[in-house]
Design a binder for these strands. Structure first.
Lengths: 187, 187
DNA sequence: CAATAAACTAAGCAGATGCTTAGTAATAAA
DNA sequence: TTTATTACTAAGCATCTGCTTAGTTTATTG
């Protein structure tokens, strides 16, 4: 016995995520979210509680969206080659109209750093450690590597994908490809 | 026939730079600058014109400060080994009380991205291209590399130092050392 | 239909932001 | 000592921030 919502939460979240992805957390205001999501502030707060709430749900939406490439990585059985393919897939994923937006998660880690809300931070760390485990699993597929080597190479790969993610926002395609090609020379 | 300034601009700039370095540009307010620099807003605006003005001068102060390690790189005659040493020197440089602040320049590029003021951006790009040229010069010292290889390796190194710079804010020492050690196996 | 419950609109809140300005204090030349 | 010039203090400006709330509209149930 009540009125129906005039929007679907998943639909407006897609738009919110896109805005956070392009703009970062702090410099995206609730007024901007209003316009982009196409709903009133009241509705934003009714559905998501706070700006932080919208952001946390945006991270979840992001995870769903990136799943198409993390899934490929998870299913790949070709070791290091699969990881390298993931790097290229990520570049395509982060690109929109020839503008590279980087990774929403790493962008946020870098923006908020230690000042990040614990709830947000926990979500970001969980995402990163998931990627690292995918790297480790693929590294294990290459026969002769001992656990110590795998751990060290995984640390290397995490730093490298972080670099690629940030660099993608500034460097051109050729520069990024140079970086990836050399990065995988010796694994 | 006038009153004397009660502060030295270089001294208060050191403090401003430290604050921007820790906090980033946007989330450092003029009120925070007041407290940290120990002078009134009037004095800030009289000396530097705007918050952006303080920041531009902070970048210059940063460049002077980092010169001690870029200088070592410039003077080094041992090719790739000199660059690797620069990576380690940078980690030490970015560390304060076991907190890694990353690089003020790359932090800012990543924070402001395309939205950055053109004057600020030009300053940041100039810094980055200077580092790249230092890398190229050192790569040239290794006899047999052709120009194409050097260009590609320089792109790789720029992405890698970017990754290290950002990663230093999150990862622990061991992880960073793993990353550097493996990164230089590829050269 | 009338009653009720939820979703909407738009105005408004307190606090923070970058920046300015009116008034006062200190200095050095005349 | 007077006067001109600069530096200081602190209050205040308009605008933006995240968030709330009073009042209205829409739908469902009895």
């Amino acid at each position: 016995m009540a009125r129906k919502k005039q929007y679907k939460e998943q639909e407006v979240l897609e738009k919110a995520m896109a805005l956070f992805w392009r703009n970062g957390y702090e410099s995206t205001s609730v007024r901007m979210l209003e316009k982009e999501m196409g709903i009133n502030q009241f509705s934003i707060y009714a559905s998501f509680g706070s700006k932080k709430g919208v952001f946390l749900e945006s991270i979840n939406t992001y995870k769903k969206k990136i799943h198409c490439i993390t899934d490929k990585l998870e299913k790949s059985q070709n070791g290091v080659a699969g990881i390298k393919q993931y790097f290229y897939n990520f570049l395509e994923f982060a690109n929109e109209n020839n503008v590279n937006k980087g990774c929403l998660v790493t962008n946020t880690v870098n923006e908020l750093g230690e000042n990040a809300d614990p709830t947000v931070m926990a979500e970001l760390v969980k995402f990163a450690s998931n990627i690292k485990h995918l790297f480790i699993n693929n590294l294990k597929q290459d026969s002769q590597k001992d656990t110590d080597t795998i751990e060290r190479q995984a640390n290397y790969l995490m730093t490298t994908i972080l670099g690629i993610s940030i660099a993608s926002k500034i460097f051109n395609k050729k520069q990024l490809e140079d970086a990836i090609e050399i990065a995988f020379k010796n694994l």
